[in-house]
Amino acid sequence: GKELVLALYDYQEKSPREVTMKKGDILTLLNSTNKDWWKVEVKATANDKTYERQGFVPAAYVKKL
C-alpha cells in the first residue's frame, strides 16, 4: 500500500517545488531516497473542491507512520 507520513511541524513552502503542511497533517509519501527532502502528496480543499499537490518537504519535519 501507500506509505504515509505525519507532519511534526508546520512548514511553509519557500519555492514552487515545495508544499505547505500543518502539524498533524497526514501525507502520502512518494519518494524518500533523498535524506533531506522527501516528496509527498498533499490533499487540500479549496472552494469545496479537493485537489492534490505533489512537492517536497524537509525530511526532519515528518515521520513515517
Rank of each mutant, 00 (worst) to 15 (best):
51 Y>H: 08
53 R>H: 06
1 G>T: 13
64 K>C: 09
4 L>E: 07
24 G>Q: 03
29 L>M: 03
57 V>C: 03
4 L>C: 13
13 E>R: 13
40 V>D: 00
13 E>Y: 04
15 S>A: 08
26 I>R: 04
28 T>N: 07
28 T>M: 10
16 P>S: 11
52 E>Y: 15
61 Y>P: 00
28 T>V: 15
13 E>A: 15
47 N>P: 09
25 D>M: 12
46 A>K: 13
59 A>V: 05
56 F>H: 04
58 P>I: 05
64 K>I: 14
11 Y>V: 00
50 T>M: 10
11 Y>K: 01
3 E>C: 15
43 K>V: 14
35 K>Y: 07
33 T>P: 04
3 E>Q: 14
38 W>T: 03
57 V>D: 02
7 A>M: 02
64 K>H: 08
55 G>K: 02
13 E>G: 15
54 Q>E: 08
56 F>L: 08
20 T>D: 03
35 K>T: 10
12 Q>T: 14
14 K>A: 09
37 W>H: 02
44 A>H: 14
58 P>Y: 04
2 K>M: 11
36 D>Q: 13
14 K>Y: 04
11 Y>N: 00
32 S>F: 06
39 K>H: 08
43 K>W: 13
59 A>W: 02
46 A>V: 15
9 Y>E: 08
42 V>P: 06
45 T>Y: 14
45 T>W: 13
21 M>E: 00
4 L>S: 07
44 A>D: 10
31 N>H: 06
2 K>Y: 13
61 Y>F: 12
64 K>G: 05
38 W>C: 05
63 K>Q: 13
60 A>C: 14
4 L>W: 13
29 L>A: 01
42 V>E: 04
2 K>L: 11
65 L>C: 14
1 G>Y: 14
9 Y>A: 10
19 V>T: 05
53 R>G: 05
47 N>S: 10
47 N>M: 11
8 L>H: 02
39 K>A: 07
51 Y>K: 09
47 N>A: 11
62 V>W: 03
52 E>T: 15
15 S>N: 12
20 T>M: 04
43 K>E: 10
52 E>W: 15
58 P>D: 02
61 Y>G: 05
13 E>T: 07
29 L>K: 00
26 I>D: 01
22 K>H: 08
17 R>W: 15
54 Q>C: 11
13 E>D: 04
25 D>R: 02
13 E>W: 06
56 F>Q: 03
30 L>S: 02
30 L>R: 04
61 Y>R: 05
51 Y>G: 10
36 D>C: 14
41 E>H: 07
28 T>I: 15
22 K>R: 12
6 L>Q: 09
58 P>F: 06
31 N>L: 08
37 W>Y: 06
53 R>Q: 06
27 L>T: 01
33 T>Q: 12
60 A>F: 08
19 V>L: 12
10 D>A: 07
64 K>S: 07
33 T>K: 11
23 K>W: 04
65 L>A: 04
6 L>I: 15
41 E>K: 09
20 T>P: 06
37 W>L: 02
41 E>G: 14
35 K>M: 09
40 V>R: 00
39 K>T: 06
59 A>N: 02
34 N>M: 08
6 L>E: 09
21 M>R: 00
25 D>F: 04
3 E>M: 12
22 K>A: 07
25 D>Q: 14
15 S>C: 10
34 N>R: 09
61 Y>T: 06
64 K>R: 13
6 L>V: 15
49 K>V: 14
4 L>G: 03
15 S>R: 09
60 A>L: 09
